[in-house]
């Protein structure tokens, strides 16, 4: 984790290493898996513990739990409408899992499991399959009308339908790449500037120490920015899921 030596090694922070000794090695239990379990545990603990007291005047934890609930609830109902209420648990789980994954990556020595395309594409593919199945369940074969807008000239069908199908298939790709790229870019930038601090700081004299404060200041600003991105990307994932759910429920 530490930036050592004279070269900038920004990508080794994303390497997977097995944890839990021989058992973890045998089943491929990496620090990524461990952080996912931790994220699920923390979300569950927050929601269970936070609302366990059921106070009229909420304490800090209860306020956090309730405001996150209300935030996602408002988002889903605002995008999908009243029929979206039954999809709220799905979107809420996704949002909290991604948010905690992003935030756990901001903890020193933590690992960002959302910086792996395998994880984000897994989540996006889940969204894609769920949304498509919901659309098929609600609309049956009418769902395929989604790929051909009403009123378009029939002559253009061989052109419009493949384009619409590709556009539909590109949803999970763009959804996963957006989250993955944002997390990777942020952590690479943090690592690069952290390495600058060490490289300049290890140079001789007072000048080196003074020079090192510049990238350190940049890094402090970047950490604030990364906290914003961590929240924003979880929000973007959740709102796009809701938009896709809206399309699945209403088709047009």
């Amino acid at each position: 984790m530490a930036a050592e030596g004279k070269s900038i090694d920004a990508l080794s922070q994303f390497e997977l290493t097995p944890v839990l000794g021989a058992v973890g090695n045998a089943v491929g239990f990496t620090q990524s898996t461990a952080h996912m379990l931790l994220a699920v545990g923390l979300v569950t603990a927050l929601m269970l513990w936070g609302v366990s007291r059921r106070a009229i005047v909420p304490g800090r934890l209860q306020a956090l739990a309730e405001s996150s609930y209300e935030f996602v609830h408002e988002l889903v109902v605002g995008q999908v409408g009243d029929q979206g209420r039954k999809y709220f648990p799905f979107v809420f789980s996704l949002f909290m899992f991604i948010l905690f994954g992003n935030l756990l990556g901001m903890v020193p020595y933590g690992f960002t499991f959302t910086s792996h395309i395998a994880v984000t594409f897994g989540l996006a593919a889940l969204v894609f399959v769920v949304v498509t199945v919901i659309a098929l369940m609600i609309h049956g074969t009418h769902f395929f009308g989604y790929f051909f807008p009403e009123g378009a000239p029939k002559v253009l069908a061989p052109l419009i339908i493949p384009i619409e199908v590709i556009s539909y298939l590109s949803r999970p790709v763009s959804l996963s790449v957006r989250l993955f790229a944002n997390m990777v870019a942020g952590h690479v930038m943090l690592k690069v500037f952290a390495t600058f601090v060490v490289m300049i700081g290890s140079a001789a004299g007072v000048l080196g120490i003074l020079g090192a404060t510049l990238p350190l200041a940049v890094n402090i600003a970047l950490i604030g920015f990364e906290l914003l991105v961590a929240f924003l990307q979880a929000y973007v994932f959740a709102i796009l899921t809701s938009i896709y759910l809206h399309d699945a429920v209403h088709l047009h």
């Binding site: 590109s170 790709v173 957006r178 944002n182 709102i239």
Partner: peptide, 26 residues
């Protein structure tokens, strides 16, 4: 609504991802 990641960089990045992912799928 619908454009959460505002700011020129955010919008540009989103547009770029949309183009590249559709092109990649194609």
């Amino acid at each position: 609504r619908g454009s959460p990641n505002s700011g020129p960089w955010g919008v540009g990045f989103r547009a770029g991802v949309e183009v590249v992912s559709a092109l990649g799928v194609g």
